[in-house]
Simulated assay, not measured.
Amino acid sequence: MPLPFLTADRAFDATTEDVALPFDDHDHWRRPYRPGPWRVAAAALLLLLASFVLLAAVITAAAGAVPGAALCLGLAALGIAVALRMLRMGTWVSRHGVRRVSLLTTTTVPWNQVTAVRTVQQPVRWLGLPRTVQGQALLLVRRRGEPLPLLTDHNADFLSRAVAFDRSADTVEAWSDEYRPA
């Protein structure tokens, strides 16, 4: 079963490094990078745990404890939903704007509300935890409101992948240059 949200489009493979916006259809929301190994590993472990909970639900239902089986089924469904949401987390771009997807919220900013997209050196959260380290962040500066961090080089997608962070930041900046009003 193909999972299109798991991988970036093939347009971001090594054969198209000189093309900033390699898509024919810029109306679809696209993530300009592949999910990092930390994010994929966490989602895989959560799905593995959900499979064991589903097995427990089947065993509990076979034993005749329907409320316990329903509880196990609900916990497994919650685990699967969280794992899929973890895989969707990140920055998505289209002709309409930029979208920052987190575990519980999604923030969409139209390009006409963006004043700048730039990479800055600042303290960033390490793997989304409260601990901060010095690193790079791609910030989206809005007309109103605080800057929105789109990418950091220490999150689950780019930890120990500096080249991928630079390439993704450049791609998001290229989308901004293309669609942000001058």
Results as ranks from 00 to 15, higher is better:
83 A>V: 08
48 L>K: 03
75 L>Q: 04
30 R>V: 15
93 V>E: 05
48 L>E: 10
5 F>Y: 15
162 A>N: 10
101 V>M: 13
94 S>V: 02
152 T>M: 03
30 R>D: 07
149 P>S: 08
123 P>V: 09
28 H>P: 02
120 V>E: 14
62 A>C: 08
47 L>I: 10
159 L>V: 11
132 T>F: 11
55 L>H: 14
162 A>H: 03
157 D>V: 09
13 D>A: 12
21 L>T: 10
100 R>V: 07
117 V>P: 07
33 Y>K: 09
100 R>H: 14
101 V>G: 09
50 A>F: 04
160 S>N: 11
83 A>S: 10
134 Q>E: 14
142 R>F: 03
115 T>Q: 09
22 P>G: 11
6 L>N: 10
48 L>Y: 01
19 V>G: 00
19 V>Q: 04
175 W>E: 01
21 L>E: 04
46 L>A: 09
73 L>Q: 09
53 V>E: 13
158 F>H: 08
122 Q>A: 15
105 T>Y: 08
31 R>E: 12
123 P>K: 14
156 A>Y: 01
28 H>Y: 15
14 A>M: 05
25 D>G: 06
165 F>W: 03
130 P>C: 13
112 N>I: 04
78 L>Q: 03
36 G>T: 12
109 V>H: 08
125 R>E: 10
167 R>N: 13
65 A>R: 02
119 T>R: 10
40 V>C: 05
53 V>K: 08
122 Q>C: 15
77 A>F: 01
112 N>E: 15
48 L>H: 05
131 R>C: 03
71 L>H: 00
81 A>W: 11
92 W>V: 00
93 V>D: 02
106 T>A: 12
4 P>Y: 10
136 Q>N: 02
101 V>N: 13
4 P>V: 03
143 R>K: 12
34 R>F: 01
1 M>W: 08
139 L>E: 15
53 V>A: 11
75 L>E: 03
25 D>F: 05
69 A>I: 05
124 V>E: 15
130 P>Q: 00
58 V>D: 04
37 P>N: 00
143 R>I: 06
139 L>Y: 07
121 Q>G: 15
1 M>Q: 09
145 G>C: 11
137 A>P: 14
35 P>N: 14
21 L>D: 08
173 E>R: 08
86 M>D: 06
116 A>V: 03
117 V>D: 05
28 H>W: 10
16 T>W: 10
21 L>K: 04
22 P>F: 05
98 V>P: 07
137 A>T: 15
122 Q>D: 12
117 V>F: 05
90 G>W: 03
166 D>L: 04
158 F>R: 11
108 T>D: 12
88 R>F: 11
181 P>N: 11
76 A>N: 11
148 L>G: 02
147 P>C: 01
164 A>E: 14
